[in-house]
Design a binder for these strands. Structure first.
Lengths: 214, 214
DNA sequence: GTCTATAAGGCGATAGAC
DNA sequence: GTCTATCGCCTTATAGAC
């Protein structure tokens, strides 16, 4: 599960430059937004001129499309990687905890690619949105599966709305981007706390199964 | 608590036009982002020309600043309104539920102003950010207060990290923007479900106090 | 591969007619 | 109050020198 394949010392060659451009673009898109980031700024951060970028990419749209795809795949692989390291018959709670850790890890640590998607998705040109949607749906299917499995096994109460639960958990995880600071709590600590909130609640008293609203 | 002051029939006069501009701008900024929305588009949606907007506003920055301020105040007032309608000695759970409902109500129903802030904040010019930050901090203080009160009263377990809890709850609430669709679940239903997740958890079995990580 | 130079159009903002 | 017209700058993207 280590990524010791790429040795990030001084790079050279066109392929490496391409990678550099992607890295820098992801960082800037994530921070200032797609529309708020001119190609000049990306080039400047690489000590290049804007025109030179077109040797490596056809357009600005192609650039962010590639970043978005990499980002979603990063989350997917990070989550799947964590979960398949678990023993075969793990509890649903363990699976969801591993998934939360994988999600946050990709989001916060390998972060620029993933956060670009989360912060900009709604504001992008439609054709780009629909291409990214495919990968995202595939990812959310993982959660759909784990959650309904948990309910079938009786680990999640039968009255819980799994769709709202899924969207709430993923929403909370994704929003962590906006307040996470390195050096404070670790990604794993945060994931553990957040999953504990959802799984066990924060209330002191032991509770009964609450009645459904409506 | 009603806003029966403004009668929104056909409007006329400069003040009303100003309001129209704010409404349309909020909608477009929220949807396509600040940098993704040219003044020309705002004007076009009002059957006006871009230049005419400058009779009502000094600059595009002033326009969004006003929207952001209104948005944050809307959430603040919606939340405070809900909470102070409660009986004096309400449980912390009731208070937090009312707050969640107020937050979502402002976010999802009176939505364009509030969602503009949430979707665009990180990508805005620094001077604007810091002005909005003041109002937002004041709002988050409410939650800080309610949560620590709940812990002191013993309604929240002593091992719960209140900062992470607060940010996780607000994150989940705010992200609801990205998946809420009118006509499906009501705002109140969603708030009840989400607060129940955080308060009671979703796990079936009665649990003991979990040990702290680390 | 990266540069300079520039095209072609979009942007926020202003001035003055009406 | 809103229009037309326009300024000056910035944007994406291209062409050709090196």
């Amino acid at each position: 599960m280590k990524t010791a394949t790429k040795t990030p010392r001084k790079l050279s060659g066109a392929k490496k430059t391409r990678e550099h451009i992607l890295n820098v673009s992801a960082k800037l898109f994530s921070k200032r937004g797609y529309n708020g980031t001119p190609l000049r700024d990306i080039a400047a951060a690489l000590n290049m001129k804007a025109g030179s970028l077109y040797y490596h990419f056809d357009s600005k749209e192609q650039l962010i499309l590639e970043i978005l795809t990499i980002g979603t795949e990063n989350i997917y692989e990070s989550v799947v990687g964590r979960v398949k390291d678990l023993p075969e018959k793990s509890s649903s709670r363990s699976i969801l905890l591993a998934a939360a850790k994988g999600h946050l890890e990709a989001l916060l640590e390998k972060g620029d690619y993933t956060s670009t998607g989360i912060r900009n998705y709604g504001q992008l040109p439609k054709p780009i949105q629909s291409k990214v949607l495919l990968v995202r749906d595939k990812y959310e299917d993982l959660w759909r599966g784990w959650l309904s499995e948990a309910k079938e096994k009786g680990e999640i109460r039968p009255d819980v709305d799994l769709k709202v639960l899924r969207l709430t958990i993923l929403g909370a995880l994704n929003r962590t981007l906006e307040w996470y600071r390195k050096g404070d709590l670790s990604v794993e600590q945060i994931a553990e706390m957040q999953l504990a909130f959802f799984w066990d609640g924060v209330a002191k008293a032991v509770k009964k199964t609450p009645k459904k609203p409506g």
